[in-house]
Design a protein around this nucleic acid. Structure first.
Length: 414
RNA sequence: CGGGCCGUGGUAUAGAGGUAUUACGCACGCUUCGGGUGCGUGUAACCCGGGUUCGAUUCCCGGCGGCCCGACCA
């Protein structure tokens, strides 16, 4: 992508109505645009980051037999009434509207009800199970207070997966199976060492649910962590009973601010019972399906990654999610020798299949470097007079600031 | 939802009861050419409604919007 054609521009100053570091940097760099409190547009660069994250998640979900689909945002009132979750007194984040043709609809804040209902059309027998399906969906939640920039919005992208099993054993096996898959995701995003499977409040049928909490100053949760024992406990369930159950002592745990980047939840047979989703077992009897749900906050992860890795100069993306792998910065003037060298290099990098953002604009070097730092692309290749003459290009690693002189051929090797 | 702070060009800001400062940006010209180059000219703003007043962007009330703290948070 030629930066001269990119309609977004970096800004020098952070907007006055944002305090959160993630939103300030993402807006300054042109990744997102604030539409209203808790609702942000994904601009071309931001969309690329989101798509990168989605791809990592997709690969890991596919690896545990998840089948991707996408559900509607519009939700049937009758369905949610059946599970007693239509009322605003029960679910306080509903957005609702009315159909002109008559009747009320809700806007999806979660999808276990409709997905369970839909699956009734396809799951008849224990032989149809186990199955798990997932989607990347824009959730709408009427939060009383949106905050922390992109980390807690009213409209956000979430990966939600739902599993269906015929018996408890295979159900729990799958539930456990998702944990390493989730950790693979977080590891690939560069936050594996700071993300913990965390015991959190359960529901009607399980003592605990499991959250994936990432150490992050801007996070809303407080988590107690024992790195040695590999145990983490959400503050909300932090008590003597929990400690006894888990076999840890209070003084073994370190307290952190954390952001919930994922959550897995065991519904037991309750959800399917409410929905009337059952299968015939081998003995010919109807049996409610065992269900689980598994979420990952995709857009929240964008915020967490910015919060965790940004430095005083701007954003620093992990390679796995960066909008481009290389930021090619030309210091030439339109039509001069330097520009021609940069242009040719850009074309060849494109042909080599390298994702490259090419700063071909006519601006001062200092401004280009400052903007490049702000954007946070992992590698910057600078084309100046020296490079044009010697064929040795300056490659700067954004994260470390390390500078190397590399020959052209090396830049085209992936 | 309770409490607090705040709404001025595209962005960030100053300010006063008599239509508004500065910087960035943007346009044009010159300058500069490896860390947000310097100069000149130009462009562009007081959230909405009501009240007080000769006059309100400024003071008062209400609304709308934003941020923060708390509460809430499958």
């Amino acid at each position: 992508m030629r930066q001269s054609k990119l309609f977004t521009k970096a800004r020098r100053e952070a907007p006055s109505d944002e305090v959160a570091k993630n939103a300030q940097l993402l807006i300054r760099a042109g990744y997102i645009h604030k539409e209203m409190a808790g609702a942000y547009d994904l601009l071309p660069l931001g969309l690329r980051v989101v798509e990168k994250i989605k791809q990592v998640v997709r690969e890991e979900m596919n690896a545990i037999s998840g089948q991707e689909l996408i559900m509607t945002t519009l939700q049937k009132k009758e369905l949610w009434e059946r599970t007693s979750r239509w009322s605003d007194d029960v679910v306080d984040v509903w957005f609702k509207s009315e159909l002109k043709a008559g009747g009320e609809v809700g806007f999806g804040w979660s999808h276990e009800e409709p997905i369970g209902e839909m699956m009734k059309n396809f799951i008849m027998s224990y032989k149809d199970l186990p199955v798990s399906v997932y989607q990347f969906q824009t959730k709408l939640r009427n939060e009383l207070r949106a905050k922390s920039g992109i980390m807690r919005g009213r409209e956000f992208v979430m990966k939600d997966m739902y599993s269906f099993a015929a018996d408890e054993e295979s159900h729990l096996a799958y539930y456990e199976f998702t944990k390493p898959a989730y950790m693979n995701v977080f590891r690939r995003l560069g936050i594996g060492d700071d993300t913990f499977v965390t015991f959190a409040a359960g529901g009607a049928f399980t003592k605990f649910s499991h959250e994936f909490q990432t150490i992050c100053e801007a996070g809303e949760d407080v988590t107690y962590v024992s790195r040695e024992k590999g145990i983490a406990v959400n503050e909300e369930v932090m008590n003597d009973e929990t400690l006894a159950t888990l076999g840890v002592a209070r003084d073994e745990l370190e307290k952190f601010n954390t952001a919930e980047v994922g959550n897995i939840f065991n519904f037991g047979q309750q959800k399917a019972t409410d929905l009337g989703l059952s299968v015939k077992n081998a003995d010919g009897k109807e049996n409610p399906v065992w269900m689980g749900s598994y979420g990952i906050g995709v857009t929240r992860l964008v915020g967490v990654l910015v919060e965790k890795f940004a430095d005083e100069k701007g954003i620093v993306w992990p390679e796995s999610v960066a909008p481009y792998a290389v930021h090619l910065v030309s210091l030439g003037k339109p039509g001069d020798g330097v520009s021609k060298v940069a242009d040719a290099l850009y074309e060849d990098m494109q042909k080599a299949g390298i994702e490259v953002l090419f700063d071909d604009r006519d601006m001062s070097a200092g401004q280009k470097f400052a903007e490049s730092d702000l954007l946070g692309i992992p590698k910057r290749v600078v084309v100046g007079k020296e490079a044009a003459e010697t064929g040795m290009f300056e490659a700067v690693e954004r994260k470390s600031g390390e500078v190397r002189k590399v020959p052209r051929a090396e830049l085209l090797a992936k």
